[in-house]
Measured scan of single mutants.
Amino acid sequence: LAALHAEGPLAGLPVTRSDARVLIFNEWEERKKSEPWLRLDMSDKAIFRRYPHLR
């Protein structure tokens, strides 16, 4: 499970980098069924690119 911001401008976004990794992994797991070539990237760089508020 990932903790998400409940309200405000960040509502629905992950609270920590660990939470972001959970979301990225879950999405990758779903997408790899139809796109088996996808690589999993959970590096800090990938997290910041996707969720800049975690910098």
Rank of each mutant, 00 (worst) to 15 (best):
P52M: 02
K32H: 13
V15N: 03
H5Y: 11
P52F: 02
N26G: 08
D41R: 02
E35L: 07
L23N: 02
P14E: 00
H5R: 03
S43T: 10
G12E: 04
L23C: 07
L38T: 09
P36H: 08
F25C: 07
S43V: 02
I47V: 12
L4F: 07
A11Q: 13
K45H: 13
L13Y: 06
L38S: 07
P36Q: 07
K32M: 08
S34V: 13
R55D: 10
A2Q: 08
P14N: 01
P9C: 09
L10H: 11
K45N: 13
P52V: 02
D41A: 03
G12Q: 05
A2H: 07
S18M: 13
G8R: 04
E7T: 13
V15H: 06
D41E: 06
R50C: 08
E35H: 09
H5C: 06
R31S: 06
L23M: 09
T16L: 04
P14M: 01
L4M: 09
I47G: 00
L54T: 01
D41C: 07
R21S: 06
R50Y: 06
R55F: 12
G12C: 09
S34N: 14
L40T: 02
E7M: 09
V22F: 10
L23E: 03
A6I: 12
S34G: 11
L38W: 10
P36L: 04
A20D: 00
D44R: 07
M42R: 04
P14F: 02
K32P: 02
H53C: 01
T16C: 10
A6C: 12
R50L: 12
P52I: 02
R55P: 05
V22E: 06
H53I: 01
N26K: 13
E29K: 15
P9N: 08
N26H: 13
R49S: 15
K32V: 15
R17E: 08
E35K: 07
R49Y: 12
M42G: 02
L40D: 01
R17V: 15
E35M: 07
Y51P: 01
E7I: 10
L38H: 09
V22D: 05
P52Y: 01
K33T: 10
F25D: 01
L1V: 15
S18K: 15
E30P: 02
A3K: 15
I47K: 00
R50I: 09
P36M: 05
D41W: 03
H53W: 02
L4V: 13
W37K: 14
K33Y: 09
L40Q: 02
G12R: 06
M42D: 08
W37N: 15
R50Q: 10
R55H: 08
D19Y: 03
S34Y: 13
R39G: 09
A11H: 08
W28L: 02
E27H: 06
R55V: 13
E29H: 13
F25Q: 08
R39D: 12
M42L: 15
S18V: 10
L13I: 03
E29L: 15
E27I: 06
L10K: 05
E27P: 00
H53N: 03
E30H: 10
A20K: 00
R39E: 15
I24N: 00
D41T: 03
A20E: 01
M42E: 06
E7W: 10
A20N: 01
R31M: 09
R55A: 13
R49H: 14
A6W: 10
L1T: 14
V15W: 05
A3W: 11
D19M: 06
S43F: 02
R31L: 10
I47Y: 01
A2L: 13
R49N: 14
F25N: 05
A46K: 08
R17L: 15
S34M: 12
D19A: 09
E30I: 12
A46M: 08
F25Y: 15
L23F: 05
H5T: 04
I24K: 00
F48Y: 14
K32S: 13
T16A: 08
E35A: 06
K45E: 15
A20T: 00
D41Y: 05
R17D: 07
E7A: 12
Y51K: 00
A11G: 07
W37D: 14
L23Q: 06
R50G: 03
V22S: 08
K32D: 03
W37C: 15
S43Y: 02
T16N: 11
K45D: 15
D44E: 09
V22K: 14
E29D: 09
R55M: 12
L10R: 04
I47D: 01
E27R: 03
D41P: 01
L23W: 03
P9W: 07
F48I: 14
G12Y: 05
S43A: 03
I47R: 00
G8L: 03
D41G: 02
T16F: 04
L4Y: 05
G12V: 03
L40Y: 05
L13D: 02
A20S: 01
L13Q: 08
R39P: 14
L1G: 13
E27V: 04
F48E: 13
R17Q: 12
P14L: 01
E35Y: 09
M42P: 02
R17S: 11
P52A: 03
E30G: 08
K33S: 10
N26V: 11
Y51N: 00
F48P: 01
A11E: 09
W37I: 05
E27N: 05
L54Y: 00
A6R: 12
R31C: 06
D19E: 06
W28P: 00
L10I: 05
I47F: 01
F25W: 11
A11S: 10
D44K: 07
T16D: 06
K32I: 13
A2W: 04
E30T: 11
W28N: 01
S18H: 15
N26L: 15
L1I: 15
K45C: 15
Y51H: 07
A2E: 07
A20M: 01
R17K: 15
E27A: 06
E30Q: 13
V22I: 15
L10S: 05
A46E: 15
P52D: 02
A2P: 14
G12T: 04
S18I: 12
E29S: 15
E27S: 05
N26P: 01
P52Q: 02
L38A: 12
L4E: 05
D44Q: 06
L13G: 02
D19N: 03
T16I: 01
D19V: 03
R49W: 11
L13H: 04
R21N: 03
I47P: 00
D19C: 06
M42H: 05
W37E: 12
K45R: 12
P52W: 02
L1H: 13
D44G: 09
P9K: 09
P36S: 07
S18F: 13
V22C: 13
A6Y: 10
R31N: 07
A6E: 12
L38V: 11
P36C: 07
W37S: 13
A3P: 04
K33R: 10
S34H: 13
K32R: 14
R17I: 15
A46V: 10
A11I: 11
L1K: 14
P52L: 02
P9L: 10
E35V: 05
R55K: 13
